[in-house]
Design a protein around this nucleic acid. Structure first.
Lengths: 120, 120
DNA sequence: GAAAACAATAGACCATGGTCCATGGTTTGG
DNA sequence: CCAAACCATGGACCATGGTCTATTGTTTTC
C-alpha cells in the first residue's frame, strides 16, 4: 500500500511515518512502477506501526524502539535479540514502578486534601 | 540554603533547579543579606524537588508537575486540588497500563525468540 | 486532457527539557 | 588582601519528536 493508505489505517500522519522510516523503525520497498519513486508498504508494516505507536504512547524513545524492532523483525542473531528484549523489559518495569511510586504519593496527597475538605 | 547546597543535596544541577524555579515548580526567597541577590531555599524545597525529579523520571511533564505542585502546596482551593490529583492519577494509571501492554508484547516476543533459539 | 489528489524530498519551524557559556557581582579561605 | 569558589542572568546551544511548507513529479478522476 502507499503511504496515504498506511497513514489512514495506522492513524499516523504521513510525516510521522516518514520520520519513523528514516529512523529505521519500519521499512518499505520501491513500487512496481518504473515511472515514479513511490514507496510500497506491506501489511506487516501496519502491525509494526501499531507496536511503535503504542510504544511511543508508553513513553519509549524512538531509538529504544529501533532496537526492539531490530530484535523482533531484524535478522540479528536471536541471542542478542533476547538480550535487548530482556533489558528493555526490565527498563519498562522500572519505569512502571517509578510511576507507581508517584501514584502512591498522589493517593496520600489526595487523602490529605480530602481531610482538609472535611474540616471546612 | 543556597542553590549550591540544594544542588548537592537534591542531585540536580543548578541549571536544572533554576529551570524548575522559572517554571514555578519550586520557589525561593531573597537572602537576608542586602549586598547580594542570592536566593534562599527552605528545606521544604528539597522534598519538593525529590517529588519533582521522581515525577520527571516517571515521564511526567513539567507543566503537569506544575499543576500537581500547585495542588499540593499552592493555596488553590482544595476541591480543585482534588480534581487535579484525581485526573493526574488516572492519567498515570493509563500510562502504566500502556507500558504493561508493551511488556506483554515483549514477553510474547521473548518466548518466540527462545523457541527459535531452541530449534537452532 | 486538465484539475485534483497524491507522493517524495528537503528544510524550516516548534515545543520540551536540559546543558553550557560569558559576564559581572559576592563570599570565603588561606 | 587576593584568589578561588560561589551566585545570578541571559542567551546560545543541543537532542528529541514531531509538524508544516514549498517544490516538483505522478496518478486519478471527471
Amino acid at each position: 500500500m502507499k503511504i496515504g493508505e498506511l497513514s489512514e489505517r495506522s492513524g499516523l500522519s504521513r510525516d510521522t511515518i516518514r520520520l519513523y522510516e528514516k529512523n529505521d523503525l519500519i521499512s518499505s520497498s520501491a513500487s512496481q512502477s518504473e515511472t515514479n519513486n513511490y514507496r510500497d508498504y506491506s501489511d506487516d508494516v501496519l502491525l509494526q506501526l501499531k507496536f511503535v505507536s503504542s510504544g511511543r504512547e508508553a513513553g519509549i524513545s524512538i531509538s529504544d524502539l529501533r532496537e526492539l524492532m531490530k530484535a523482533f523483525f531484524g535478522s540479528c542473531d536471536p541471542s542478542e535479540a533476547e538480550n535487548v528484549i530482556v533489558a528493555k523489559t526490565a527498563e519498562l518495569k522500572e519505569r512502571v514502578s517509578q510511576i507507581e511510586n508517584v501514584i502512591v504519593f498522589l493517593d496520600a496527597a489526595l487523602v490529605k486534601v480530602r481531610e482538609g475538605l472535611d474540616e471546612t
